[in-house]
Design a protein around this nucleic acid. Structure first.
Lengths: 159, 159
DNA sequence: CGCATAATGTCAGAGCTCTTATATTTTGTT
DNA sequence: AACAAAATATAAGAGCTCTGACATTATGCG
């Protein structure tokens, strides 16, 4: 079927407002969505989502974090992380050690299967990751990184 | 309450792997999430979300688009756009003209209230938008834009 | 004309993310 | 010791986003 030509002059994904002249926020949203989808599809057969991969990676680097710790680390709310952790626990990828010497805090660690799963995911994600830097010069990549960190850490309470 | 010091040497949001040395994909995810949240909160009292704002903006620029058109434009699936359009329709911000000379296609247009709502949103989003470019030199901004477009338009079917 | 192909739209199910609200525990102050 | 404040965890409700599946309609070819 041919496209019914609903409207004229709709820009293609790289042109006009959808290209380098568009709103930065719009471009940021699109880029992040495209990347998330790419990662999700690369890990789909392992049953792992991008947020789950991030959480597994954080737990591998810092075993014993609490739900609240993870949320702070990922810049997400504790409620959000709780959903992700619950799903990972149901899949057997991590363990909650409910006790902890002090507190009602639950320490979370990767299970053996979780560690194996993470190893499987890593190669695929790294491959996608390396595509991200293709076409960037060293100073450009530095500028991009600095900008991303700035956007992520810009406090909500400021101007 | 003092933090129970669950684990040592957890990096703050701008440091180590969470800073300019981290994975680009991770930084991209964090930056987009922070920006989305900022926009969502700025528009919360109007009952408008970031995806809804994007959809309203696209419809203002190209009235009469179909659901499928919008999905292609936003790099989202038709199902996703359908949810957003349904919510906007329920709020009275847009109209579906079910008929269209040919086809089962439904042309979508902003209602008067939708246009007024969009005008209200624009100022707030533009204010946030201008923060995004603060601290970027002209060549840096160009590099960032070029990179974002490249990431968004990188085809899934390529290497 | 009749059928395959493609495009549109929709439903159901799963996961992520936020807000709001509640219960529990720990710390700090009086 | 008692109470207030802070932190942790969790649940409910809403919205966004994907996959998979399905029905409907339009185009193109035999």
């Amino acid at each position: 079927m041919r496209k019914p030509e609903s409207s004229p002059s709709i820009p293609a994904p790289g042109e006009g407002k959808r290209g380098e002249e568009g709103y930065l926020g719009y471009l940021l949203r699109q880029a992040a969505g495209a990347h998330r989808l790419k990662v999700d599809r690369a890990l789909a057969d392992l049953g792992v989502t991008q947020p789950q991969f991030v959480t597994l990676t954080m737990l591998a680097a810092y075993p014993g974090l609490s739900n609240a710790d993870l949320a702070r680390l990922a810049l997400l709310t504790p409620q959000t992380l709780s959903v992700i952790v619950t799903n990972l626990e149901r899949a057997g990828s991590l363990l909650r050690k409910p006790h902890a010497v002090h507190g009602r805090i639950q320490h979370i660690e990767l299970s053996a299967t979780g560690q194996a799963l993470l190893r499987q995911c890593r190669d695929r994600v790294h491959a996608i990751e390396s595509e991200l830097t293709a076409g960037l010069s060293a100073p450009e990549e530095r500028a991009v990184r600095r900008w991303l960190v700035g956007v992520a850490t810009a406090d909500t309470t400021e101007a």
